[in-house]
Design a protein around this nucleic acid. Structure first.
Lengths: 145, 145
DNA sequence: TTAATACCTACCTTATTGGTAGGTATTAGT
DNA sequence: ACTAATACCTACCAATAAGGTAGGTATTAA
């Protein structure tokens, strides 16, 4: 089934949440995260580079190494994370970053609809940070426990 | 590139808009619409059945036949049209109609995020009708012309 | 020196997308 | 009755993307 958010974005987000929850300033091996999250380590290794290259996380090689968040969760916008891992959050091709302008754009009745949706989706994700999604469950746990 | 709305939903919407604009109570041959919209007739024929079976449009066979809207554009919600043609508007698999419940749903930090987005997207499309997208351009034309 | 880690690149399988091809059934006009 | 125009149906198909796997190399702590 065609999904808006693929495993790349979803897994990346879960990794970052895991880092926020388990990395107290130190480096967390991706192997641990892969096990906790039930995701293939090899697949994660293919997803992460875009996050290190764009200063979301940093990796330390060698024994005792791993990954950690560069910024505090409060400063990690979900929108940025997803745009990096998904490549784009455009709902239709003509709104993609590198799309060539559509010849019908002048007369197109649907373009404004897609544009409005794109704005809505991007604003939604940009209005949330890693801290928001981490906090959600902790608060619930504290309240019930 | 993976898009939220595929050609199925986009073409269907353009067909319905065309019907709203060109079908004054009568039947419009799909061939005409395909030519106006620059879409393959054969492909449209594969997309339309779900709309006829769900009482969005009705077809009349034979010479002089074609399609027409069953309800006035004001009563045709965009959400319904897209859910029919796209199958679903769920942003992730675990929110799809026929999805089996995820084993991690209890602990999942991201589920609420996707659920909130799904609500946002569905509400957005349910808040618009065919009349809204048709009207958009006509109003502009009247204002400038 | 060794074990554990990040980091890199090529390959692979499957499903989906976006169609095409070739018909049959039905109807209006002549 | 015949013909042309239409909806309607079903099988097939090529290209692409999704979701990985495999097999390495580079780096570092102990």
């Amino acid at each position: 089934m065609r999904m808006m958010i693929s495993t790349r974005g979803r897994y990346a987000l879960r990794v970052l949440i895991d880092l926020a929850e388990h990395g107290d300033g130190g480096y967390v091996p991706m192997k641990d995260i892969a096990e906790r999250q039930g995701i293939s380590l090899k697949y994660l290794e293919r997803i992460l580079p875009v996050l290190t290259k764009n200063d979301i996380i940093e990796g330390l090689q060698g024994k005792g190494g791993g990954y950690r968040l560069i910024k505090p969760p409060e400063e990690c916008g979900i929108g940025g994370i997803l745009r990096l891992t998904e490549g784009d959050l455009a709902p239709v091709a003509c709104l993609s970053s590198g799309a060539e302008p559509c010849v019908r754009s002048q007369e197109c009745r649907t373009y404004p609809l897609w544009a409005e949706l794109a704005q809505l989706v991007n604003d939604f994700f940009d209005g949330k940070t890693l801290a928001d999604v981490v906090r959600a469950d902790r608060t619930a746990a504290e309240e019930t426990g």
